[in-house]
């Protein structure tokens, strides 16, 4: 009985998470310019509208590139930063950690303008790579926190044991620490990619004329109230869900195979 209640509760929470996504999915097929009840005729006009704009695909590709680089770089930096904080005790460590966590706390409007001024001073503003730089600054703290959490779960003696067994620091890193932190690294990879894929306020300022998808979505939804965004949202959501399911299948198949081998 308790388990049943718990299960229903889990379903309820998931319902809360997915309700807006599902509803926007439904709206994306409604002809009505301003989403409202009752639903009007079924139509694909918003999908047509999206596909008709050549800029949409460009910005979509750009966003994927930016998210890819951002997640790789900020996960590397975040893991490195977390490891340094975990392994070493040094002067100003608190300041180091504090500085590391500040960027996501700065209101995005301010951070966006500051980034624009900073990047154009060093001649790097107004393109895709500027967005990557800005997003790495924004995302690294998340990655650092997740990795630091995982590292603090690690048995402190594990690393020392590896050294005692003659492993070089690099080999220890590769064979002991990295495998242990793998779930955290993967999680931080996903989360930073997700943050980057959804960030528009800073990107608006620094991307110049190379707009990313969220910046376009912002224009469409906040200023024009266009249901095209429901189509875009459903499109990207379906795509990412497909990717996740594919990854799952691959994982399950490979687990089965390795299970058989054992």
């Amino acid at each position: 009985m308790g388990l049943f209640l718990l299960r229903s509760y889990v379903v309820l929470i998931f319902l809360f998470i997915f309700a807006p996504i599902l509803v926007s999915f439904v709206f994306s097929f409604s002809e009505n310019r301003f989403p409202s009840l009752p639903l009007t005729e079924y139509s694909l006009v918003w999908y047509q509208r999206v596909l008709d704009e050549p800029a949409f695909l460009d910005s979509f590709k750009r966003s994927l590139t930016v998210a890819g680089w951002t997640s790789v770089l900020s996960t590397c930096l975040g893991f490195g930063g977390a490891y340094v904080d975990y392994r070493y005790r040094f002067l100003g460590q608190k300041v180091y950690v504090a500085l590391g966590i500040v960027p996501p706390m700065i209101p995005v409007l301010i951070l966006g303008v500051a980034m624009l001024i900073f990047l154009s001073r060093i001649g790097l503003s107004g393109a895709q790579h500027s967005v990557v730089i800005a997003h790495v600054v924004l995302c690294t703290p998340f990655s650092m926190a997740i990795n630091r959490l995982k590292l603090s779960q690690m048995d402190q003696n594990l690393e020392a044991a590896a050294w005692n067994l003659g492993a070089t620091p690099w080999a220890t890193m590769r064979t002991v620490i990295l495998p242990f932190c793998l779930p955290a690294i993967l999680a931080s990879f996903f989360i930073t990619a997700a943050i980057s894929l959804d960030e528009f306020a800073i990107a608006w300022f620094v991307s110049g004329l190379e707009e990313t998808l969220p910046v376009r979505v912002l224009n469409l939804v906040a200023r024009q109230s266009s249901p095209s965004v429901n189509a875009i949202g459903s499109f990207t959501f379906t795509m990412s869900l497909t990717l996740i399911i594919l990854a799952q299948l691959v994982l399950i198949v490979s687990q089965r195979r390795s299970g058989r081998n054992e």
Partner: peptide, 17 residues
């Protein structure tokens, strides 16, 4: 995986919905 799925839709769109 289901928890991660909403990360790939815009929060802005979810808020307006």
């Amino acid at each position: 995986c289901l928890i991660m799925a909403p990360f790939f839709t815009s929060f802005l769109v979810r808020a307006y919905t």
